[in-house]
Design a protein around this nucleic acid. Structure first.
Lengths: 261, 261
DNA sequence: CAGTGGTCTAGACCACTGT
DNA sequence: CAGTGGTCTAGACCACTGT
């Protein structure tokens, strides 16, 4: 039967009393957000330890001079991030083993840039072409419609790591080759005001062809990771379709999933 | 510069007026949840079409006889699911291209079961062993501590697809071999009252060894997808560590990511 | 400018938990 | 039983958007 585990004495975070939250009502930053950030910092620095109870919401709101809904909104932010757990009748506590943070959607960002390995990018192709059937279907445009195709070779430490092939609606933004070689595609899109919202990905594997092997400095038949992805902006419009291959000997996808009830 | 796209006349959903939401205050189901479900159904059935504006929150709350915060809570639920988009000064609209639904975290569930391919599972190993260093680290227990190791061969249509190796804290639940052969591990854990909350995954690829190839009915050197995963319950406790290999010729990971701002 | 969602208040009653 | 988070109300003022 379901034993939730030894439940060894949870105490109200002793540090919480002495913790002085500095809330600035003059700031344009919302109060709930100021509070959430300070709670998050306290958890990050270990001031609030895993398993600590936060103290009930009413007391907390009185102590902070905030209304209860505002305190709840701050807590909800951290619950969404997986840092706090709420239990009715029990209280709100700091999650036991912190899941490694900052990785939530790294695979949506520039895949290698996040690793801090100083990646380099060589743009092999950057031109307008008519959309093939699969590209048109992925981007939700007519077959033969104008799209930009982008092919990049990415390397770290002078070693090739991946061949990235992307298709974008031609009208979406200007893709400057020089800028693409100094930053990631997604960063470029964001700075053009495109807000990425979701993506659908397929990750598979296969053996390298002779040509792929040569370009990636592998032997023929070496294992490759493959990814296809369609990314959508916050209105649900497809904004990018990509087909990537990665050297499995030098790269793996690493990410965290949050289960929403 | 950022053109958000042709913005072709968005109209208030004409259907919204005639849509009668049936809210039952006697029900134990929260009002915001009743509303969210009915809105979701309307979107799903196309009554609310992509791009339609929902009408402002104040009018909506008056019309429904609810307070504005309750209406907001319902809308927020659907925004979180990626079905609605809010824009300050503009309104709330139905997302343009609905992202395929029901896939959000399929890779956290029984990987093949979701595909509806009638998978079969053969339990090769199910016993208590002392934790090795890597298993102990992943599960946050002492090296040499008691863990259950589980090895399963999964197949569809009589063809092997994956070899799944999992480690669980020994005290967590009873793992009945017969039940494991008829259902997935995660389903078993959920029915034992364990609430999965998050997981950290690494997906890579490599070539099959001779022994792996033999067990998976592949040739030596064939591409394999590899996954390592640590799953956590809603208190942040690690509840499972797994090392899986999949035949790349017969399986790929397919999932959707939501970007949270 | 009018209209929208974003934030915030100060309460209320309830369902659930653990002792 | 006392204590907790979950839900809900009826307002208020503001920042931002598009015309």
């Amino acid at each position: 039967m379901a034993k939730t585990g030894g439940h060894s004495r949870t105490a109200i975070a002793p540090a919480l009393d002495s913790l002085d939250f500095a809330l600035d009502r003059g700031s344009p930053v919302p109060l709930y957000y100021q509070l959430a950030q300070q709670l998050e910092a306290a958890i990050e620095h270990g001031v609030l330890a895993p398993g600590n109870l936060l103290g009930n919401e009413i007391d907390l709101s009185v102590r902070l001079g905030l209304s209860r809904p505002t305190v709840r909104q701050a807590i909800q932010t951290l619950v969404d991030k997986g840092l706090l757990v709420r239990r009715r009748g029990v209280g709100t506590q700091v999650v036991h083993s912190q899941v490694k943070r900052g990785l939530e959607l790294s695979s949506l960002y520039d895949d290698l840039e996040a690793a801090g390995q100083g990646p380099t990018t060589q743009v092999v192709r950057n031109e307008h072409v008519p959309a093939t059937a699969d590209v048109a279907a992925a981007l939700g445009i007519a077959e033969g419609g104008d799209v930009v195709v982008l092919e990049r070779l990415r390397a770290t430490h002078g070693q090739p790591v991946a061949i990235l092939c992307n298709y974008l609606p031609a009208t979406l933004l200007e893709l400057d080759t020089a800028r693409l070689e100094s930053t990631g595609l997604y960063r470029l899109m964001r700075s053009a005001g495109i807000t990425l919202h979701s993506a659908r990905q397929t990750i598979g594997a296969r053996c390298a062809t002779a040509e792929e092997a040569a370009r990636l400095d592998e032997r023929e038949g070496a294992a490759l990771l493959t990814m296809q992805r369609t990314a959508y902006d916050d209105t649900g419009r497809p904004v990018e379709y990509g087909t990537h291959i990665y050297r499995a000997s030098r790269y793996a996808f690493d990410f965290q999933l949050l289960v929403r009830p």
